[in-house]
Design a protein around this nucleic acid. Structure first.
Lengths: 202, 202, 202, 202
DNA sequence: CATGAATGAGGATTCATTCAT
DNA sequence: GATGAATGAATCCTCATTCAT
């Protein structure tokens, strides 16, 4: 049940990759994907520009890896979800959180930029599609699962449509956060509750 | 209280601006804001690169003008909205429409790119904020208006929260279209109906 | 019988192209094709690096244009050839001439480099093939032409084989010049005369 | 007067050098001298890039060593030459042979590249000069040697001029092979025979 | 008004070479 | 001896913007 212990070299490689991804994420958020130069990433990662290319083929490969990373993190988060209240809280909390402070969650702005990029770059399109499918599947599972296990016991097809609706709403919310972080909280809370309660009602 | 009739020069200027904006819109959609060069815009507008600068200070000013343009167009659309069925149809129809074919509606991908850009560029942030506010206001009015006039007669504060929810959902939908244009139609229809009916119910 | 007069813009363009080609030729000879940077060419042409790209798609396009230029020049030279003595003199004179001093004749070193490059670059291979074919054809014509017109009146197939032999010999000579410009003149003269007289004898 | 038997270390060193030279030769032929990276050579030699520098000061030193190697191999070949027919056959056979298949003979393309490089690099110039001198000397010997020993018994000075002519012709032929491997064989054969018979006739 | 040639800084990427392990 | 990670300068090329005509 154990995989072979990673060699020292592999550990090092892993660490370097992560250093680069963290630095790239930071730069992409700060300057935007197109305006973040490899040099700026290198500087943020405290290494030479050339070294990045030992670990990633090019700039695109970096953003792809970041998306992949997010996939795992996001799946974990959804799985930890229990009640509808959990979800409401999670959403509001997310909205209040500063973007840059959280290296674990992909900046929304970056995600939007990538969504736009997906229009023109098939690799990115695929990566995001994989991400979307995972989210929808996990959300569907959550809505369909037995209430005893923290689900809502909805029939499969209903769950599927509601998962989509929920997903779209949350994404709209994320996009909005980008532009209007100081939105009227009371109004927002009302809106979220109305949607969530409608969609999780059995 | 009337403005003076526009001079010939002003008319000309207006026409030139529109030519540039249309060309820029096309290029931004096709290549993305950052990858669309001023040269490509000039070519699409069938004029010299230098001339563009007589009408717009720089590339940024062009995108700002495009956002402003969208504001007017979108307001008009919302005002033409009547029943909830209208809205559902409009949404589905929008999702099915090819982006590039419609010079009137801002490409979603471009809008996402701008949302992301708003994070780093205050001018763009302001322009989009104005846009958002207009949409929310118009949607609120629609929900609050007297049913006799094609509204839903909701109380102001309820209307305001629902308008927001609706707005967020639609935006999530738009963003999704960018990445998954071939989404399962039946599922999508269910989701849209559920949200719209919930939010427009009195 | 006249082509349309070139516009001022065309004249300018032509001049710029020539300026670039001359500068590139100089740099390629001085530093070698691979070591000559676009920046060095720009400097030699006294223009900005970016401007070069208005006239040539990339570095490769420049070398292709240079080869094409040589084709015309070389054809002219062969056509001006009269007696076998002419040829011997021309060869020796060529060997004595400094490379860089003559912007009209492609540096032999550069030609060798391109021959090598032809091994890996199909575009260059084609350009040089065209050059080779032209030279062989012109040389064959010269050997087959009526003596009254400055030819040697050889039968077509004989002329063709001898033209090839002559061509190969001259090329070997050119290649050697690159490495041994100070070769023993008397010995060289004997060798050239022996070959030329053998190949032009009827 | 004998050198001391090589130590184990020296044998090892010799073997490593040869491994590197073979790998470098392969890469230089495949990618060209300038495009072959030290990394690619290291990979072909199945060792680390750093190790190469223990045996060769830099990339230049490698090419110099390759030229030196060729000198020995080529000398041996010329010495094995007997009749003029031998030579004709050898030439034609050489022309037909695939370059890469023969690690013993320096790729012609590479040799051309080096000839060009000799123009700018004095070390390479010297190495090739040494090579050229050896070839000419051996060819002269062959032509001057007593027919009983497989030579042609020509007087020294005649032999010298003819050796040069032969050498130049063969080099032109090699260069041509680079660009036109599929040349008309009959025509080529005629040309070769004409030159060889003229130059070896007593 | 309009052109489009010209600039030059900036970006991604490569690679010979070094050096700590 | 051997490794291969690391450097950083250099390369080709792009593009927003300016300005002489």
């Amino acid at each position: 049940m154990t995989t072979a212990a990673p060699t020292k070299a592999e550990i090092r490689k892993q660490a370097q990759c992560e250093r680069i991804l963290a630095a790239a994420h930071e730069c992409f958020v700060r300057y935007g994907f197109h305006n973040a130069s490899m040099a700026s990433i290198a500087e943020a990662a405290d290494m030479s520009p050339g070294l990045i290319y030992r670990y990633f083929e090019n700039k695109n490969a970096i953003i792809l890896a970041i998306i992949e990373q997010q996939l795992d993190i996001t799946r974990q988060r959804i799985r930890e979800l229990r009640s509808a209240e959990d979800l409401c809280e999670g959403i509001i909390e997310y909205y209040d959180k500063q973007d840059c402070g959280d290296p674990d969650s992909m900046s929304t702005a970056l995600f939007l930029e990538m969504s736009a990029e997906a229009t023109r770059d098939e690799e990115i399109a695929q990566a995001i599609r994989r991400f979307d499918n995972m989210v929808r599947q996990e959300a569907t599972d959550w809505l369909a699962r037995d209430p005893a296990e923290g689900g809502h016991g909805l029939p499969k097809d209903v769950a599927r449509a509601r998962a989509l609706a929920l997903n779209l709403f949350i994404e709209g919310l994320k996009a909005r956060k980008t532009r209007e972080p100081d939105i009227d909280r009371e109004c927002l809370l009302k809106a979220v509750k109305m949607i969530v309660s409608t969609l999780t009602r059995s």
